[in-house]
Structures are given as structure tokens and as C-alpha cells.
Design a protein around this nucleic acid. Structure first.
Length: 588
RNA sequence: GCACCGGUAGCUCAGUUGGAUAGAGCACCAGACUACGAAUCUGGGGGCCGCGGGUUCGAAUCCUGCCCGGUGCGCCA
């Protein structure tokens, strides 16, 4: 199923072709001036520029050809050469009927036969998740949902940070405290205890202490580096201790992501590719791609046309330890081997851009990436209301857990104020508050363009009027309520619409644009396009809703048609909210 | 110093191959609940699109030079 604008573009394209012009000029888009027309084609202007002809003349020729097609109700040339187009109500009704029958609502098939690995999350072992992890989680999850909906085979990977210096820092600190001496005994033959010597709470306390000590004292840093290198070299006690860190952290992380409704196909970490690192390095050395530089082993990635310095990717530090660039490279090898993706998408902070550029260049230079395109979809940093990196009122880092608790609490307060869920059981009220709070959080994040830094403003996020997640939930809940009442009165919706008013036409046009929004959002890896779509849809429906009463409509056919329209709106809204990772309560 | 990302209404942000009168939300002002849920809807005011130059019939968008903010640039992740 192609979309309406694609269909119109094809028609206009062949009109241009028939005039000996490129079919590309036929691109049709929703009108910038809805008061003048439903759609517009600007191709005559572009064509005129290229051929140095009169744009209105070209527009006239195209318009004359388009008149042959019955899909158009009105064709008009305006201004310097815009072609304004209206589609017949019958054509709209037919396409709406087709959309209603399609379970995917006409979703694009842009990923059919293709596989994408989406790498996001990237939490570190032994560190609690904080607000800084929110964007990767929310944006990455939205993209994995979107790509799946667009027929991609998606493999998402949380890519835990579990193999770097922070591991050595933890080991060093625990060694100093002598709370688990068995892991440090040189001659110990095992087995090591099953039970972890540290809890997640312990790790959360130990890590900052260790990190601060390493920062303050070069001796401690050296110690941590040595421990990291020994861990990576396979020292049994360290490996055993490390396993505990990972297990303890991972169960906590799974819970946190689950509370946001986010899941991953793979819970791999940097360490999981460790066995591949040695052979990969040997291979790169043998092919002359890896060379020694200042005691480290590097891959040079600078290219002749570079406008900036491009430092080499360091594979091995002078002490023999690997860096995250090394594991990232080995992870590409692993992914190519296990799922042979067409695309590997990294949803990671934009500040990592330089790093990924290095890794990608190294991978391409060594042809490690198979057929996969490597792409970094970065995002801006999240700041506090003062424009500086976000902190709690006390000046500390805000944990994700606390943040979710706060928004949920705020949502509960709002429900109480509005007197909305008064008679609902407490369980349901809590569930609604959770869904509303998370919707507010996710929508506020996703509606910003990915690359702009955004201000984390709890007061603004928990406001539920206007362009917010809860507004969309509310719109959906109202429709659900109407449909429930209709069903109770045995009123059936009709698939075929009866178009009578501007509000209905506007609604149908927006519904038919869903696949275009999904395709555009995928192309730009831009969830904010979906947010805009959903908000506009809800707004248009609300207008329709306030203008036309549905259930009390006397004309049964008209009533059924409007129910059908409401039903399709709900389906589209539910779909987009699902892509955004937002749940809709039964009632609220 | 070099590079990357931003600069659009009082605030937070959109703006699709360059196109018609630059759009939302919040805030402000004025309206709409004895009909389907008012967390809603309708209307209004509010803009040298950071600044200058250039390309074009036409620029928030492309090129160029500045200014401001953020970030990154060899052994952290």
C-alpha cells in the first residue's frame, strides 16, 4: 500500500515526464496553506529554474494533464507557479477504508528484508542509572520500535559498560578494604563463593569513592589501571569478582529499564567480545593496519581530505589493556558474524561523535563491517533549568529511579486535583499515575529534535496541558470511552466514511499521513516527527469532537461513519504512542 | 588553535527537495460545560528567524565572514 502523497506524487511525476521533465519534480506534499488546498506541488518552480522557462506555463501544462485523473477534485495554479490540489471525498473515503482494514495502518515497508542492530542504553556496571541515561533509553527504544514497525528486523543491544577502567577502580578499592580477601589471594585455587561479596548498594557507595581516589592520587589510578589490565588478562580472582559486579548490576538495570517499558534483545557488554579482541588484533597486525605508536597499538584513521585532526584509534594501551574503541570494533565483528546487519545504529550522546568517527573509519578501513552501514545517531545533552548539566537540588546526580518516582507522584497529585480517578481502586489509580508520569517524561524528551540540548524542567514536564504526553493519552481515553458507550448501545462503526465537513476531511487527511510520518521519522531517525504527528492528530480530532456530536447523531449512517472515524483515529493514536513507548490507560 | 552541534515569540521548542501570510505549547487577554470526559475547544495580541555580505524571481533554509552558547580533540567511558 502506497501512501496518498506517494500516489499523488507518482501521478504528478508522470505528468512532468510527459512534458519531457524529470519525474522528480512531481513531488507532492501536504499544503502549507490548508486554507487554499489540501496538497501542493512546487515542481513547476524548480523545473522552470532548471530549464529557464516560465514557471506558470509549466504549471499550466502539468495542471492540464492532471485534469485527466479522477482522483483530483480541484486543480489550481497559484502565485508564481504552485499547483494546488484537492482530492475527491470519494478517493479519501476509499483510502480510509483500506487503511482501516490494514493491521499495520499502512506502515511503510522500508526495512523489509533488512536487519538493523540498534545499540543504545549503554549503562555502566556498578553505577546507578541517572537522568543522563534517560535520553539514550527513550530515543533508542523509540527507534527500535519504529524500525520494527517499518518492517526491519531489529536486534537491540544494551551494550553494558563492563570492561573498562571502572572495573579496575572497583577491584582496587575492594582490595584495599579487605572485605573479600579470597579474591585477591595469589595461590587460591577456587572455587570462589557463589554469593556476591557486594550488593548493588555497596557498589553504588564504593564506585564514587574509588573514582574520587583515582582522580586525586596518581598512585591509585595506576593501581586501578593495573587491576584492569590483570582482569582483562584473566586473573581468576578478579574475573570472579567481576562476574559478581555484573550479575548484581544487571538485575537492577533490567528492573529499571522494565519500569520504563523498555526491553533489549541482547544484554551483551563490552566484555562479551573479549574473546574476539585477540584474534582481531592479530588479524589487523598481519594486514599491516595496526601499528605501534608511543608504546600503544593503534589504527591510523586520518584521511587526506580531513579538515580536522583525526587521532588514531588506540587498540591497546601501553600497559596492554584494551579501550572502549577496541571493544566497539570487536563488537562490530561480532555483530557482523552473528546477524550480518545492514545497519548498526548507535544511539549515544553526541559528545561521543568523534569517537564513533574513529571506530567507523577503522572498521571500514579494515573491512570489518560486512555490508553494514555504521551510523551514530547522537543526541544533545540534558541540562537543568539553569542551562547547566542537570543536578538535584542538593547538587548531586539525580537517579532515574527517583526521577520516575517524582513524576509518578506528581501525576497522582494531578489526578486528585482534577478529581479524575476518585472512585477507581487504588491499584488502578497508581497504575494510571505511573503511565501518565512516564508518558509526560518520554514525550517531553522525544518531542525535541534529537541533536538539540534540552532543558530538564520537572515542573514543565509534569504539566499536563498542551503539547504533552498526557494530552495524547487523554485524547485516546476519550475516544475509548465513546467507543465503549457505542458498543453498550449496540452501535456499530462503519468502515466507510461519509464526508460532510471540513473537520472530517482534515481528520482523514491526517490519518492517511501516518505512513509518511513513520517513513520520515525513520529516515531522519527523528522521533520528534512522530510526536508532532500524534499531537496534530489529537488536536484535529479534538476539534472534530467538539464540533460534531457522535453518539447523539440521529442519522444512523452518519453516526456509524463518525464512529468509524473515531475508531481509526484511536488505532492511529495508539500506534504512534506505542512507537513512542507510551501506554494508554483504559481510563484516567 | 582546529572541528562538531546549536542560536527562531517573554519561556520551551517545531519548521520535510529553497516557495505563498515563519508555526506549536506554556504564559497573557477574551469566550465556550442542562450532549459523547473542560487534562478540552474557539478567538486575540506577541517575531530585524544571532549580526553582516553573497547566490536567486524567492532564503529561517544554500555559500561566506563575524558574534554568542554547548561539546570534542592519543592511552577514561
Amino acid at each position: 500500500m502506497t501512501t496518498l502523497v506517494a500516489e499523488l506524487s507518482a501521478i504528478a511525476g508522470s505528468a512532468f515526464a510527459a512534458e519531457g521533465l524529470s519525474a522528480g519534480f512531481g513531488q507532492v506534499q501536504p499544503s502549507d496553506r490548508p486554507d487554499l488546498a489540501q496538497f501542493q506541488c512546487n515542481g513547476a518552480l524548480a523545473a522552470a529554474k532548471q530549464t529557464r522557462a516560465d514557471p506558470r506555463r509549466i504549471a499550466q501544462k502539468i495542471a492540464d494533464r492532471l485534469k485527466a485523473d479522477p482522483v483530483f477534485a480541484r486543480i489550481e495554479i497559484a502565485g508564481p507557479g504552485f499547483i494546488n490540489l484537492d482530492v475527491t471525498d470519494a478517493a479519501l473515503a476509499v483510502r480510509m477504508g483500506a487503511m482501516a482494514k490494514d493491521a499495520t495502518l499502512g506502515a511503510p515497508r522500508s526495512g523489509a528484508g533488512k536487519t538493523a542492530v540498534v545499540d543504545f542504553g549503554g549503562p555502566n556496571v556498578a553505577k546507578p542509572m541517572h537522568v543522563g541515561h534517560l535520553r539514550s533509553a527513550i530515543i533508542g527504544d523509540c527507534l527500535q520500535r519504529l524500525f520494527r514497525a517499518n518492517a526491519w528486523t531489529v536486534v537491540s543491544d544494551v551494550h553494558l559498560g563492563d570492561w573498562g577502567l571502572q572495573m579496575g577502580q572497583l577491584i582496587g578499592e575492594i582490595g584495599r578494604r579487605s572485605t573479600a580477601p579470597v579474591y585477591f589471594e595469589a595461590g587460591f585455587e577456587g572455587p570462589y563463593p557463589e554469593e556476591s561479596p557486594v550488593t548493588m548498594d555497596d557498589l553504588e557507595e564504593i564506585y564514587p569513592v574509588a573514582a574520587a581516589a583515582c582522580k586525586a592520587d596518581p598512585g591509585r589510578l595506576e593501581e586501578a589501571r593495573r587491576a584492569t589490565a590483570e582482569l582483562q588478562a584473566g586473573r581468576p580472582g578478579y574475573v570472579a569478582l567481576w562476574r559478581h559486579f555484573v550479575e548484581v548490576s544487571e538485575s537492577g538495570l533490567r528492573r529499571e529499564y522494565a519500569s520504563l517499558g523498555i526491553g533489549f534483545d541482547l544484554w551483551n557488554g563490552e566484555a562479551s567480545v573479549d574473546p574476539l579482541v585477540g584474534p582481531m588484533i592479530e588479524d589487523l597486525k598481519r594486514r599491516g593496519l595496526a601499528e605501534e605508536s608511543d608504546g600503544a597499538l593503534v589504527v591510523r584513521v586520518a584521511e587526506p581530505g580531513d579538515k580536522k585532526d583525526m587521532p588514531p584509534l588506540i587498540l591497546l594501551k601501553s600497559d596492554g589493556a584494551v579501550l572502549y574503541g577496541t571493544t566497539d570494533l570487536a563488537t562490530i565483528v561480532d555483530r557482523v558474524k552473528t546477524c550480518d546487519p545492514d545497519l548498526i545504529l548507535y544511539v549515544v550522546d553526541q559528545r561521543q561523535h568523534g569517537h564513533f568517527e574513529q571506530v567507523f573509519r577503522a572498521a571500514r578501513k579494515a573491512r570489518l563491517n560486512g555490508k553494514a552501514e555504521l551510523e551514530h545517531a547522537g543526541f544533545g545533552t540534558m541540562n537543568g533549568a539553569d542551562g547547566k548539566p542537570f543536578k538535584t537540588r542538593a547538587g548531586g546526580v539525580m537517579k532515574l529511579y527517583d526521577l520516575i518516582a517524582m513524576t509518578t507522584e506528581e501525576a497522582k497529585k494531578r489526578l486528585a486535583e482534577a478529581g479524575l480517578a476518585k472512585e477507581y481502586p487504588e491499584d488502578e489509580r497508581n497504575d494510571i499515575a505511573r503511565k501518565v508520569g512516564i508518558a509526560a517524561l518520554k514525550f517531553a524528551d522525544l518531542s525535541n529534535y534529537r541533536l538539540t540540548d534540552y532543558v530538564f524542567d520537572l515542573a514543565r514536564f509534569t504539566r499536563f496541558e498542551g503539547k504533552t504526553g498526557p494530552y495524547l493519552q487523554y485524547a485516546a481515553v476519550r475516544i475509548q470511552s465513546i467507543l465503549r458507550k457505542a458498543q453498550a448501545q449496540d452501535m456499530a462503526p462503519a468502515a466507510r466514511s461519509i464526508l460532510q465537513t471540513p473537520e472530517e476531511r482534515a481528520l482523514i487527511l491526517q490519518l492517511l499521513a501516518l505512513p509518511d510520518a513513520m517513513a520520515a521519522a525513520e529516515g531522519k531517525r527523528a522521533p520528534n516527527i512522530l510526536c508532532d504527528y500524534a499531537f496534530t492528530l489529537a488536536q484535529i480530532f479534538s476539534r472534530f469532537y467538539s464540533e460534531h456530536h457522535i453518539l447523539s447523531e440521529k442519522d444512523a449512517a452518519l453516526r456509524a461513519a463518525r464512529l468509524g472515524l473515531a475508531g481509526l483515529t484511536l488505532a492511529a493514536l495508539t500506534k504512534v504512542l506505542d512507537l513512542l513507548g507510551i501506554e494508554i490507560p483504559q481510563r484516567m
